[in-house]
Simulated assay, not measured.
Amino acid sequence: MKKLKQWIAAALAGVLALGVLTGCGQSGGSSSGSLESIKERGTIRIGVFSDKPPFGYIDSNGENQGYDVYLAKRLAKDLLGDESKVEFVLVEAASRVEYLQSNKVDLLLANFTVTKERAEQVDFANPYMKVALGIVLKDGGITSVDQLKGKTLAVNKGTTAETYFTENYPDINLLKFDQNTETFQALKDGRADALAHDNTLLFAWANENDGFEVGVSSLGSHDTIAPAVKKGNDELRSWVNDELAKLGEEKFMHKNYQETLLPYYGDDIDPEDVVVEGGALE
Results as ranks from 00 to 15, higher is better:
E235H: 11
V86K: 02
A192C: 00
F177T: 10
E98N: 11
I38R: 03
W205V: 03
D193T: 09
D51W: 06
V216A: 06
R118N: 11
D51C: 05
F124L: 01
A93N: 12
G278E: 01
T224H: 10
Y99L: 01
Q65I: 09
E208L: 06
T115W: 04
A13H: 12
E83V: 05
K73I: 03
I38L: 03
T183V: 03
G140V: 08
L18T: 12
K130Q: 09
A280S: 12
Q147V: 08
S221D: 15
P263N: 13
N241T: 04
Y164T: 02
E92Y: 10
S60I: 13
K3N: 08
K73F: 00
S30I: 03
N156G: 14
E120D: 09
K39M: 06
D193H: 04
F177A: 01
L18F: 15
V122K: 07
N111F: 13
T160R: 05
N173Q: 15
S238E: 13
P170N: 04
V145M: 07
E117G: 03
S50W: 08
R118L: 15
A196F: 10
L109E: 08
F165I: 00
V48K: 02
L261E: 06
T224V: 15
A161T: 03
Y265G: 00
L12T: 11
L202K: 01
T113Y: 13
A192G: 00
I38F: 00
E162G: 01
I142D: 13
V69T: 07
F184M: 09
S50A: 12
A206I: 11
A196P: 09
K251P: 02
A280W: 08
T22P: 08
S144M: 01
E259F: 13
L4F: 13
L18H: 09
L262D: 13
G279W: 10
A13G: 02
G278T: 06
A206T: 12
L281H: 11
R118S: 01
K104Q: 13
L236T: 04
L174C: 06
D146L: 06
E213R: 12
F184T: 14
L262K: 15
N233W: 09
L108I: 12
G81R: 05
P170R: 05
K151V: 02
A9L: 03
